[in-house]
């Protein structure tokens, strides 16, 4: 009788946990032998900083809206995937390719998007997070130009789910690397475009604003610098980037917002506050060089 009751309890317990265990096994097998210790701050604090970091899609969207032509020479080569052997490199380059995919998606360059999709799928599988990347659905949407909104939604959601899963599995350091790679690629595209165009003002301002994001990413990297030796290396490369942004100032002026009601009852908030970015041409040159340096270190 007792055995039977124990069996029942196990059955109930198993039905609730079996899904987690198989994926846990898979990712444990894929992790490097290198041990990543827990950071000195709570997972909650890390998650709070991570969620602030805007989507790299914002940069691609800005470029498309301002009439900048698509240029895949600015992106990482999708065939370089075989070079990324460690979980550290895989996580960083998953971020790089994620931004490249978003860029080619926004410009509806389907052939390039499908190549990046293939590389992302492979990297995600190798990191045991491939189950969150719905390759077939995204590929189907990417080949049909009518579905751009849905394509961007599904792709963004997949990446958000990957981030959430990594955090839940105590693999936040990989999630930080993924976000870092994505951000570096977006800033590099922005810096390269700024160099090429004549009307630079908007791009210069956008580059200067990246100081806010850099501060957040640096904080995240600091959390892991005593626990993950790979991040120490990356942090060293980031030091030159922090120095390049040192003189950039963002001045904020508060003005009362105007609130009104839209046609469908929605609340409309018009924020009249402004920011002014103070940045010199020399700062831009230094930032571009530092971003290139960090990116090259990641993608080599």
């Amino acid at each position: 009788m007792r055995k039977l009751l124990l069996g029942l309890a196990l059955l109930v317990g198993f039905s609730c946990t079996s899904k987690k265990k198989s994926s846990e096994k898979e990712f444990m097998a894929s992790l490097d032998t290198l041990q990543v210790l827990s950071p000195s701050v709570s997972e909650e604090a890390i998650a709070e900083i991570m969620e602030q970091i805007p989507s790299p899609l914002e940069v691609s969207l800005l470029l498309k809206e301002t009439g900048v032509k698509y240029n895949n020479e600015l992106l990482n080569n999708p065939q370089k995937i075989s070079k990324y052997n460690s979980s550290y490199k895989k996580a960083l380059n998953l971020g790089i390719y994620g931004t490249d995919l978003g860029y080619s998606n926004i410009y509806e360059e389907n052939q390039d998007a499908i190549e990046y999709l293939g590389s992302i799928k492979k990297l995600a599988d190798e990191m045991s997070i491939g189950q969150f990347f719905d390759f077939e659905t995204i590929k189907g949407l990417a080949t049909n130009s009518k579905n751009l909104d849905e394509l961007l939604t599904v792709t963004t959601e997949n990446f958000n789910n990957i981030n959430q899963y990594l955090r839940e599995q105590n693999r936040s350091s990989q999630s930080v690397l993924f976000l870092t790679g994505g951000w570096i690629e977006a800033v590099n595209i922005l810096c390269q475009i700024e160099k090429q165009v004549d009307a630079k003002e908007l791009y210069v301002e956008k580059i200067g604003e990246q100081k806010i994001i850099l501060e957040n990413i640096s904080k995240l990297l600091n959390f892991y610098q005593n626990s993950d030796p790979n991040i120490v290396e990356l942090k060293t490369a980031f030091a030159s980037l922090e120095k390049a942004f040192e003189n950039v100032k963002i001045n904020y002026t508060y003005v009362e917002p105007v609130i009104s009601e839209g046609d469908d009852g929605q609340v409309l908030i018009q924020d009249n506050s402004t920011t002014e970015v103070v940045i010199s041409p020399k700062d831009i040159v230094n930032i571009r060089a530092s971003v290139e340096e960090v990116r090259n270190q990641i993608i080599q």
Binding site: Y252, G265, Q266, V267, L268, I269, D271, T274, T275
Partner: peptide, 12 residues
């Protein structure tokens, strides 16, 4: 209301 539309004037 179930929707807020916010027009941003200051990056931050």
């Amino acid at each position: 209301q179930d929707k807020i539309v916010y027009t941003c004037g200051a990056t931050g």
